[in-house]
Design a protein around this nucleic acid. Structure first.
Lengths: 257, 257
DNA sequence: GCAAAAGTGTTAACGGTACACCCATGT
DNA sequence: ACATGGGTGTACCGTTAACACTTTTGC
């Protein structure tokens, strides 16, 4: 993810386990999306001793595929094993951000001598079940937590741009990828699912039409349960019919939402 | 693109212009699509003294963005300056292909000592006007030419897989990107455009419905000319209304084709 | 004149959208 | 009891898909 992280890990590796080699100048950034309440959330790291935030990221080992590296990072930050992951873009401008300013902001954490050539970063986004994640900071961060998409602060590096692009990719792929299956808990209500679509698309949806379409598509199964303990009328619970969901996505997608 | 190309260019650069540095292990592969007759075409290189083919590719200089590197490769192979280019995937498996077999196949061209660490390749696809391209081989290839998509032979490296993925990306983005504007010549006929869609989507389209939809969308302007010198009835010529095209793509895309 | 491709209109079915009221629950 | 969100049906309209014959041109 970051040039100095490369260096840091090299350093660690040298002292800890010998010479695990990294692919030079190549890093990863992960945009981890969750859904809760009525909004999309994203996992951010807060850097030690600062008020600065960034996306979680990492490096790529020589004997590790890009996907495996992303899986490793995701597991470290979320505790989750089986994660829905998509590579969405590789960021390769020469000056992705103002390096001098980053160097100053993080001088107390990273030895400035460890900075070197321009990093190229492969972007992944992940969809996770908010309820099952236990956010876990890395060595250079003091906390790792969920942020509402609309409250995301200015981030370090070019991470605001990366987040933008991830969101754009998510929207484009919304009709072809099993987004609901990965963002929602196993049992969910129709209004939950609708709010998820509203949060991603950024627009209001008519609940009657939404329900009609979803039910007609056959991707969900209505359970003989209602959600208890919520104020107001208890909503029915549903779960996905994974096979049917996959089939519908293959045969043209869920465009009609 | 290829590990030994990295080495070769380093070598060239050393002798030719000093020490232009390359980003290590990072390469580019370009899938250049054209359209002619009734089919999609792709530009392939034939390696000197062999019957082996591959996609055109290249390396990334330290002071050059990924996009600029792709633009450079595209210009070298096609002679074109302003090309529609999209990054679609970064290939990062540890063993992307059988290196030993490649090494043998190309031993007469590349010194085996020059092979080293596993390459990671950023994939771009390009859309070009078939008529305006003058294919131009590189240093290691004896020819560079168009291949019908359905006749593409087995390619070196993992290039069949890369081509597959590029085609998949093209299909996904067909409704959001100005594909027609880039693949078709400035003046084109309605059946040309229809055949282009048929070639990309791999299915037949009803010409009456197609014409109705395209005309209603307003993205093309009918010219006061017909295409002459063709057998049979002379078809009318059209050109794109670039502004309207862009507007339609932004406002939801050309899904209805 | 013949073969091959271009050009063109209507209809029926379907799917999308707009819209409002009652119900169940917790407080 | 009241406030809040959940649940549900209908009607209109627009879009899509199916379908076939005539025209023009080069050979």
């Amino acid at each position: 993810m970051l040039t100095f992280e490369i260096m840091l890990e090299v350093d660690e590796n040298k002292s800890l386990e010998g010479n695990v080699e990294l692919v030079p100048q190549l890093t990863l950034d992960c945009v981890i999306f969750g859904f809760h309440g009525s909004s999309l959330k994203v996992l951010l790291l807060k850097w030690k001793g600062t008020e600065y935030y960034s996306l979680p990221g990492g490096t790529v080992k020589q004997e590790e595929s890009l996907d495996d590296a992303a899986i490793r990072v995701l597991k470290e930050r979320t505790g989750l094993d089986k994660i829905f992951l998509r590579q969405f873009y590789t960021f390769g401008k020469v000056e992705r951000y103002d390096r001098e300013s980053i160097r100053k902001k993080l001088a107390h954490l990273v030895n400035p001598d460890l900075w070197y050539k321009r990093p190229i970063s492969v972007g992944y986004y992940a969809l996770v079940d908010f309820e099952e994640v236990f956010p876990n900071p890395d060595l250079l961060s003091e906390s790792c937590g969920w942020w509402d998409l609309s409250d995301v602060p200015e981030l370090l590096f070019d991470h605001n741009e990366i987040l933008e692009k991830a969101l754009h990719a998510l929207r484009l792929e919304l009709s072809f990828q099993p987004v609901g299956l990965n963002l929602l808990p196993e049992k969910f209500t129709m209004p939950d699912m609708m709010r998820m679509y509203e949060a991603i698309l950024g627009k209001k949806i008519d609940p009657r039409n939404f329900q009609k379409k979803i039910l007609k598509s056959g991707i969900v199964i209505k359970l003989d349960e209602v959600k208890k303990g919520v104020a107001h009328k208890s909503p029915f619970l549903y779960k996905f019919d994974a096979n049917k969901y996959e089939e519908v996505l293959k045969e043209g997608g869920l465009f009609f939402i």
